[in-house]
């Protein structure tokens, strides 16, 4: 992330990170998650799924686990889970 001014506690702040999980065979290729991901994490994949649509694929490991794709997807085909610091567990 590019900051306009670097925060003083940048080293200490732990930003929430997430992993996107895509259930490819449920996707109908509407592209809503790709268009409206605030971090631009997704793109159309070149491959087809079993129904002949192009599902999204993760292009950048930049997910913040905001769950917006999960809420917007009409097909229950995408969701995200949180990455937590190993030391915190």
């Amino acid at each position: 992330m590019k900051y306009w001014r670097v925060p003083l506690d940048l080293d200490e702040v732990q930003v929430t990170r997430g992993v996107v999980h895509i259930i490819e065979d449920r996707c109908k290729g509407c592209g809503y998650c790709i268009e409206y991901c605030s971090r631009g994490v997704l793109e159309f994949s070149k491959e087809f799924n079993k129904n002949g649509y192009h599902p999204p694929r993760v292009k950048a490991e930049d997910c913040l686990n905001c769950h917006y794709c999960e809420l917007l997807c009409p097909e229950f085909a995408i969701f995200s889970t949180e990455l937590v610091a190993e030391t915190a567990v």
Partner: peptide, 13 residues
């Protein structure tokens, strides 16, 4: 610290 994925218990979605 290194990050580890938290997978929800039983449900895929």
């Amino acid at each position: 610290p290194a990050l580890k994925e938290v997978i929800p218990e039983s449900h895929p979605h």
